[in-house]
Nucleic acid binder design. Structure first.
Lengths: 131, 131
DNA sequence: CAGGACGCTACTATTATCGTAGCGCTACAG
DNA sequence: CTGTAGCGCTACGATAATAGTAGCGTCCTG
């Protein structure tokens, strides 16, 4: 099950080329958030729901379906988890965490205490894992 | 949940930490697409509209406003263009292009003619520019 | 002046998302 | 056995986001 097939287009976006399909998938609300929250460790449905700040189950399920169709997440014993493809994607978007933290600090002058660290730790953790 | 107050929040998402705010912003439809299409060179309003495949002007304008508020895009003589911050972000998501192309190719064996090249050229171009 | 492109705004129709309630299941305690 | 609790998920009405089309005012060029 490939990346969003060029056939399954969504409203308006004429999803022709791969990049458009991808941007389209990631452009759906919570898609990136789910990817992000599954990045470090698997999570159960309700767990994921909590991590995302109380996302409604209908949407969570719908998004999970999208991501499963795109072969980004799979379902294992421990719950939902990223596939190889999902992990690759996660690795790509990972820098967003550190970047947003530093940028936010610069912009609003107040990074949330602990947040920057936790984000950077995440990045660090993955880097170590991949080494 | 005590929270900082980053960008403007949207429906439901309790946009707390910087990363959530960012994922929220990028999670809006066409946000990534606009970023992507502005990556290489500036574009006028209608030009951008065409590049995004006929996105409706109301949404385009709304998204541009969001991105301007987030200091990602600015408006210059030549049209809309990425700010420094926007370029940083673009640099982060740039690999998505090549990745989606290769993944798509692997998945259904046929990259859209011309697309893969154009994507890779984009990456190449930026790399040269930054070197 | 006509014609065209531009940046947008206004408006309605359609869709996506939210929020809550709740079902069927398992586990585990009383 | 009964109760309580968590789980994965579905259903559904309410509401916000997006699509799509039309068009205004402006600046050009001819």
């Amino acid at each position: 099950m490939p990346i969003p097939k060029p056939v399954t287009r969504v409203r308006g976006s004429q999803t022709g080329s791969p990049i458009k399909a991808l941007l389209d998938l990631l452009g759906r609300r919570w898609a990136l958030g789910i990817l992000w929250n599954l990045g470090e460790d698997p999570a159960t449905f309700r767990d994921l729901q909590r991590r995302c700040g109380g996302i409604s189950p209908s949407i969570l399920n719908s998004r999970l379906k999208d991501l499963k169709d795109a072969d980004m997440v799979g379902r294992e014993e421990e719950g939902y988890t990223l596939t190889e493809r999902g992990k690759e994607l996660y690795a790509i978007v990972l820098p967003l965490g550190a970047w947003s933290a530093s940028r936010s600090e610069e912009a609003f002058g107040h990074a949330k205490p602990g947040m920057r660290e936790s984000v950077l730790e995440k990045a660090e953790a993955l880097r170590r894992r991949r080494a």
